[in-house]
């Protein structure tokens, strides 16, 4: 049995079009398992075809700038220091000092305890501060600790919260628990945007990616995000494609735009452009904005800047000139 996406145009979740789907654990399970399946041969074939798109000249330059403006410039290391975060923020504001026309990135993404440092460093720049929370990256802690973690990030001034779902609960079929947790974190976010990390590398295939995407959307995720970056594989084109189809279907059903963030493993401009092609042709041109599509990356920015200079100057720039972040 397939659950077709119903037509009414109202907000999703508990009070909206999908109120019946999220009533209890059983309804949630019925709904998620009633979603159309994903044929892995077909989805990978479409991704491979989209990857052959040849983006050249002015469309490439536009894509490079678009990709830069969509980056969540990320540092999530145990060795992070306030100094490192400040220098990352300087790069986020003005990615290529020799070329002031290069757009700033969308956000800087840090651990919650460093959110305040980033907020200070980015004041007035228009660059958002995102903080990971909820016992990132594993999500293995109590609800209370996760909410406290979220509160720490919000108090630090983070405007965007990147939470992880409880994969253990998801994989054992306790969808209600995952849903409730997202709802609780969303509430703790207040006005901050909530990105929900599915950690697709730990899920069991594309059907799971679709179910987890819908689960997060139902629970109020503003953005669904592939990965923490700590697990491989992270963002792959077919996985991102399935998630883009989920937000497209959500929009068809509710009229609401929700975003996607591809995080982890995207290191080259070429790969980033392939993702933009997927966004363009699968979700649609509406999603080609930093509000609705993000790259979670650290090394990507350097390659985008190198490629940008190559486009303008006709020769490559060496690694010493523009390094990785």
């Amino acid at each position: 049995m397939t659950t077709t996406v119903p037509a009414p145009r109202a907000a999703g979740g508990r009070d909206g079009a999908f109120a019946a789907a999220v009533r209890d654990d059983a309804s949630l399970r019925r709904f998620l398992h009633g979603l159309p399946g994903v044929d892995h041969v077909g989805v990978e074939r479409r991704s491979a075809t989209l990857a052959t798109r040849s983006i050249k000249k002015e469309s490439k330059l536009q894509a490079l700038d678009m990709a830069i403006s969509m980056i969540d410039l990320t540092t999530l290391e145990g060795a992070d220091t306030p100094g490192k975060v400040r220098s990352l923020c300087a790069q986020a504001r003005r990615p290529d000092p020799d070329h002031p026309e290069v757009p700033s990135v969308a956000a800087v993404c840090v651990y919650p305890d460093l959110a305040g440092v980033a907020v200070e460093a980015l004041r007035g720049s228009g660059v958002a501060v995102a903080a990971v929370a909820t016992a990132f990256p594993s999500g293995r802690s109590s609800r209370a600790v996760k909410l406290a973690d979220t509160a720490l990030a919000v108090e630090g001034g983070a405007g965007e919260i990147d939470m992880v779902i409880d994969r253990g609960a998801f994989l054992t079929g306790r969808y209600g628990a995952v849903y409730d947790e997202i709802v609780a974190v969303k509430e703790a976010c207040g006005s901050a945007h909530l990105k929900v990390i599915l950690e697709t590398g730990e899920l069991a295939g594309y059907d799971d990616v679709r179910r987890a995407s819908w689960l997060a959307l139902l629970a109020g995720a503003d953005v669904i995000k592939t990965s923490t970056g700590k697990v491989s594989p992270a963002a792959t084109l077919p996985v991102v494609q399935v998630m883009l189809q989920a937000v497209r279907d959500w929009h068809r059903a509710t009229g609401e735009h929700r975003g996607v963030k591809a995080a982890g493993g995207i290191r080259t401009a070429k790969d980033a452009i392939r993702h933009l092609v997927a966004v363009h042709e699968i979700a649609g041109a509406d999603w080609l904005t930093p509000e609705l599509f993000r790259f979670g990356a650290s090394a990507l920015l350097g390659d985008l800047l190198r490629q940008r200079r190559t486009q303008l100057e006709g020769h490559y720039t060496d690694r010493d000139h523009i390094g990785g972040a």
């Binding site: 798109r53 040849s54 983006i55 050249k56 000249k57 002015e58 469309s59 490439k60 536009q62 894509a63 678009m66 735009h257 933009l276 363009h280 041109a285 509406d286 999603w287 080609l288 904005t289 509000e291 609705l292």
Partner: peptide
């Protein structure tokens, strides 16, 4: 929510 239009340049 105005996204910029992105046309693919000719790639013959």
């Amino acid at each position: 929510m105005a996204a910029p239009s992105w046309e693919y340049a000719p790639a013959p």
